[in-house]
Write a protein that binds this DNA or RNA. Structure first.
Length: 643
DNA sequence: GTAGGGTTAG
């Protein structure tokens, strides 16, 4: 054993761990080895000290010869579930078999569960298929694993087999299948499951109702979600949370908050999930006061140190550009998780404070927090936005070397943008070629943009050609190359692009934004002049632009579109979302647009990051960039296509 | 005795 201990200590040179293990062992020796050991393991599990319980088992395991009963195995499996330790469960299970202990259905289900929880669905499937007998729990456990790993269609397949074989299913099964419907985003499937649940008389079970509320809101029907919520015989915290989050999800921020106050009046327990949802809702809402109140309530209710709620708060202050407030919340958090760090790093990056983002990242590593691909995306884009080429490059290299994280396409695209800004086009191109996977459109597009900035015709043409191959119908690729030629004075080539466009029958659809004022939708195109209030709208936009310029916004005036004359070019700088916001300002008294997010673009003149301030708002007016929402593309527009 | 619902970063 001494040797075993030594080798283990060498693997994990942690004094604290060793000390802890020594204490556990000492305690174990107080009583008779076998009974004492078992009861010690069970006790440790009871107090959620899973790791110690497993360590204790592993230390003694090679010696064999002590009787382990069902309750101890159960405790050990619980420890494995708690730690998601598949290695642990394999050891426990093997020991169980070699010890001659015949696991019953309960135990087999538990083993199946650990595999499912660890996402090892192939192994779980094998275990499931090998089971001579299966009960509802076995089926439900298997379905849970499939849903958790995002394999909704397979979950449905299994459910159908079960349904055909046994015509059975309990409340858990239906809650699961409702969740699977939500995952598929198919409300029609969800409705069928709902009606089955009604037939089986399980639709009123509290957690089934909650799953239904969630499913209906995720599938786009807040009305149905509200209906299920109203029908709930007893409205629990989770039920309230689900309906609030449903309204918030669809941009009904005010409604969400009013339901939240209703919830408080009912005296239902408010938990940290409630606060996370409320804070997130406030992030979208045009009232800073609401958020501050929520922050105060969070502290009052004793969730001041909750990690999820506070992470939402950090994100909230970051999105508002209140970096000092964000940092204050961050610093006061007694413990932080990966998401907290990511939110803070991304916050600094998005506000052009790349140096602080990098410092945060370094601090994170010193604090022994393990970064993930999102962290790297945040810190690399921060470097890119702030022109920290050298640091960005070092971090990118350390990604796979020191942190064993393979850079994904987005990381490459970030680096290409970064190199491009430095004018290092050859290096950027080399990076694309060195990628261990087929370059994605994002990567070629980043290179093309860099070529446009550096007026590199040859490489730009090459990148554009790759893009044409991958997305032959995507107009923006042609427009960017057109701009590359145009900026370089190659008018003949530029005209060639226009010809290609015409031959392909591609038409330019300018960006379109959509605004809802008093439940009435209005659509605007860039440079739209068709509205009766056009004069007023443009005056308002001009005023807004002066305001935004104070915050450092630089108008990019090099964007050229084929066949568009100068006057029209000027009009196109009146982006559709600006027109929509101006319209909202004029027609919705009391509505205050808010500078909420700041993203960055590279300035085509100085190649430095400039602040681009987008206006996003909550209240009853929703402004969205229409081109990003496919269902708006089909929305009617008063002035038709631009071309 | 097991399994279930709501959350933060991108």
């Amino acid at each position: 054993m001494e040797q075993g201990l030594r080798s283990r200590r060498m693997q994990k040179p942690s004094k604290i761990r060793f000390e802890r293990r020594r204490k556990v062992l000492e305690n174990a020796h107080i009583q008779k080895p076998s009974a004492a050991l078992c009861s010690q393991i069970e006790k440790l599990v009871l107090y959620n000290r899973y790791r110690e319980a497993l360590e204790l088992f592993e230390i003694y395991e090679p010696r064999n010869g002590y009787d382990v009963g069902g309750s101890t195995y159960d405790a050990l499996v619980s420890a494995c579930i708690g730690l998601k330790s598949i290695r642990g469960v394999k050891r426990v299970f093997n020991y169980m078999i070699s010890d001659g202990f015949e696991p019953d259905m309960y135990m087999r289900n538990r083993v199946l569960l650990v595999h499912a929880k660890c996402g090892l669905m192939n192994d779980a499937r094998k275990l499931f298929d090998e089971m001579l007998e299966r009960d509802l729990v076995s089926w439900n456990t298997m379905i849970t694993g499939l849903i958790d790993s995002g394999n909704y269609s397979e979950a449905f397949r299994l459910f159908l087999i079960m349904w055909e074989e046994f015509s059975d299913g309990n409340s858990h099964t239906f809650a699961l299948m409702v969740r699977a419907s939500a995952g598929l985003g198919l409300i029609c499937v969800g409705r069928q499951i709902h009606s089955c649940a009604l037939k089986m008389d399980v639709a009123d079970v509290i957690f089934v109702s909650c799953a239904l509320i969630d499913m209906y809101s995720k599938c786009g029907s807040v009305e149905d979600a509200q209906f299920v919520f109203d029908q709930m015989p007893e409205k629990t915290t989770v039920g309230w949370n689900s309906i609030i989050s449903g309204y918030a999800l669809h941009g009904y921020s005010e409604e969400a908050l009013s339901i939240y106050s209703e919830m408080r009046e009912c005296g239902v327990k408010i938990d940290h999930f409630t606060f996370s949802i409320v804070v997130r809702t406030c992030t979208r809402l045009a009232s800073f006061e609401h958020a501050k109140q929520a922050h105060a309530a969070l502290v009052r209710h004793g969730f001041g140190s909750d990690i999820v709620a506070n992470t939402a708060l950090v994100d909230f202050y970051c999105k508002w550009g209140r970096m000092e407030d964000a940092r204050n919340v961050f610093e006061r958090m007694p413990c932080k998780n990966l998401e907290t760090w990511n939110a803070m790093i991304a916050g600094y990056g998005n506000h052009g404070q790349g140096d602080k983002a990098v410092k945060m990242f370094e601090q994170m590593l010193r604090d022994k927090m393990i970064p993930c691909h999102v962290t790297f995306l945040a810190v690399l884009s921060a470097c890119s936005y702030s022109g920290l080429a050298e640091q960005g490059w070092k971090i990118f290299q350390s990604m796979s070397r020191d942190h064993k994280i393979k850079p994904r396409a987005m990381h490459y695209a970030c680096m290409i943008e970064l190199l491009g800004r430095e004018g290092l086009l050859d290096e950027a191109f080399a990076l694309i070629r060195s990628a261990p996977f087929k370059p994605t459109t994002n990567m070629w597009a980043a290179l093309l943009t860099a070529c446009r900035m550096n007026e590199n015709l040859e490489l730009g043409r090459f990148a554009a050609e790759r893009l044409y191959e991958m997305e032959p119908e995507k107009l923006s690729n042609y427009v960017v190359l057109y701009n590359v030629y145009n900026s370089a004075g190659k008018l003949k080539e530029a005209a060639g692009i226009v010809q290609t466009l015409k031959r392909k029958g591609l038409r330019m659809l300018p960006a379109r934004s959509w605004i809802e004022v008093k439940k009435q939708p209005y659509a605007f195109l860039s440079g739209d002049k068709s509205h009766v209030q056009t004069k007023e709208i443009y005056q308002t936009v001009d005023k807004l632009m002066l305001e935004i310029a104070k915050h450092g916004y630089a108008v990019e005036n090099k964007t050229l579109l084929p066949d568009v004359d100068e006057e029209e070019q000027r009009l196109l700088s009146y982006h559709s979302e600006k027109l929509a916001i101006a319209f909202g300002l004029i027609n919705a008294p009391g509505w205050i647009p808010l500078l909420i997010t700041q993203s960055h673009r590279m300035c085509s003149d100085c190649h430095n990051a400039v602040k681009y301030i987008a206006m996003v708002t909550g209240r009853k007016i929703v402004v969205r960039d229409a081109s990003r929402f496919h269902h708006f593309r089909n929305g009617t527009c008063s002035c038709g296509d631009y071309w």
